[in-house]
C-alpha cells in the first residue's frame, strides 16, 4: 500500500517536466550550442591563430625561432626562476596553511585575510613595491649590495621575489581546506604511538595533503611562467640577462617580429596546458579517493 501511495504522489509532479521536454527539445540544444560557440570564439580561435602563426615557417622554423639565443635564454630564465619559486612557495605555503589551521593566536584571522592580497592588487604595483624596497638606491637594497654584493632588482633574485609575491596564495589556499578536514585525532594518535612531530608530519599528515600540495605547486608554477606585470618592473627588459619568456614575447611584438613571439608563446601554452591537465588529473583522483 505504501509503495502504491508513493507512486501516485510522484506521478503528477513528474508529468509536467516530461511534457515540457518533449515540446521544446531545441531549448536544451540551443543552450549547449551557445556555450560551445562562445568557447570556440573566445578560446579556440585565438589559440589556433597563434599556432598557425608560430608554425608558418614549418616545424624547423619554429625550432629555429625557439633556439635563437635571446629566446632560449628567456625560456631558460623563466623556467628556472619559476622552479626555484615553486620550491620555496610550496614549503612556506604548507607551513603557513598548517599554522593557520592548527594554531590559535592573536591576528590569525587578519593573517588569513591578507593571504589573498596578491590576487587583489595589480601585479605592476607588486613589482613597484619590490623596487621601492630593494632598489639599489634604497636603504635595504643598498645595504645588501654593499655588504654581500647581492643585486636584487634587475636580476634573477628580483624575479623570484616577484614570483613568490604574486603566487603566494596558490599553495596556501589549496592545502588549507584539506588540512581543515583532517581530524586532529590523527596527529594525537601518532603522538600516543610515540611518533615525533616530524615523523607525524612525514608519515601521517603529508600523505593526506600531498595531492593538494602538488596541485598547489603546479598551479603556482603555471602562474609564474606567464607572469609579466611585476617582472617588467622588477627585472627590466635586458635580453640574455633578465628577460623572461613573457617579456621576450612583448619585445618581439614591439620589434614587429610576430612569428618569433608566437613561437615562444606556443612553448608557454604547451607547458601551461600540460600543467592544467596534470592538476585536473590529481584532483579527480583525490575526489575519487575521498
Amino acid at each position: 500500500m505504501a509503495v502504491m501511495a508513493n507512486t501516485a504522489a510522484t506521478t503528477p509532479l513528474a508529468a509536467p517536466t516530461k511534457a515540457r521536454r518533449v515540446s521544446r527539445p531545441w531549448g536544451q540544444w540551443s543552450l549547449r550550442a551557445v556555450a560551445l560557440i562562445y568557447l570556440s570564439v573566445m578560446l579556440l580561435l585565438p589559440l589556433a591563430a597563434v599556432l598557425n602563426d608560430g608554425l608558418s615557417g614549418g616545424l624547423s622554423g619554429l625550432w629555429a625561432d625557439i633556439t635563437r639565443p635571446a629566446a632560449w635564454a628567456a625560456l631558460r630564465l623563466s623556467l628556472w626562476t619559476a622552479a626555484v619559486m615553486t620550491v620555496i612557495n610550496t614549503i612556506m605555503g604548507v607551513l603557513t596553511a598548517y599554522v593557520l589551521v592548527r594554531y590559535k593566536f592573536p591576528g590569525r584571522s587578519f593573517l588569513n585575510a591578507i593571504i589573498d592580497i596578491p590576487f587583489a592588487i595589480p601585479t605592476l604595483v607588486a613589482g613597484l613595491m619590490l623596487v621601492v624596497l630593494y632598489g639599489p638606491q634604497t636603504a635595504v637594497g643598498g645595504f645588501l649590495k654593499q655588504q654581500f654584493g647581492w643585486q636584487i632588482i634587475f636580476a634573477p633574485p628580483g624575479i623570484i621575489l616577484a614570483l613568490l609575491f604574486v603566487s603566494f596564495p596558490f599553495v596556501v589556499r589549496t592545502v588549507q581546506p584539506v588540512l581543515m578536514e583532517i581530524d586532529t585525532d590523527q596527529e594525537d594518535a601518532a603522538a600516543t604511538l610515540g611518533a615525533s612531530g616530524w615523523r607525524t608530519f612525514r608519515r601521517v599528515l603529508f600523505p593526506a595533503i600531498a595531492p593538494a600540495v602538488i596541485s598547489g605547486a603546479l598551479l603556482s608554477f603555471a602562474r609564474a611562467l606567464g607572469e609579466f606585470g611585476s617582472i617588467i618592473v622588477v627585472a627590466g627588459n635586458f635580453p640574455l640577462r633578465s628577460q623572461t619568456a613573457a617579456v621576450y614575447v612583448l619585445s618581439q611584438i614591439e620589434s614587429d617580429n610576430q612569428r618569433a613571439a608566437s613561437a615562444v608563446s606556443i612553448v608557454l601554452l604547451t607547458l601551461a596546458f600540460s600543467l592544467v591537465f596534470v592538476v585536473d588529473f590529481i584532483q579527480r583522483r583525490q575526489e575519487h579517493d575521498a
Binding site: A189, T192, A195, V204
Partner: peptide, 27 residues
C-alpha cells in the same frame, strides 16, 4: 604523550588512511 607509553583507541579509530593495516599496526 610520546614519553608516556599509553595505548589509545580513539572513538573514530583514527587509523592512518594512507598506510596498510600492517603499517598501521607497526607504526
Amino acid at each position: 604523550p610520546q614519553q608516556r607509553n599509553t595505548g589509545f583507541v580513539f572513538q573514530n579509530y583514527s587509523l592512518f588512511r594512507h598506510m596498510t593495516v600492517a603499517d598501521n599496526i607497526e607504526f
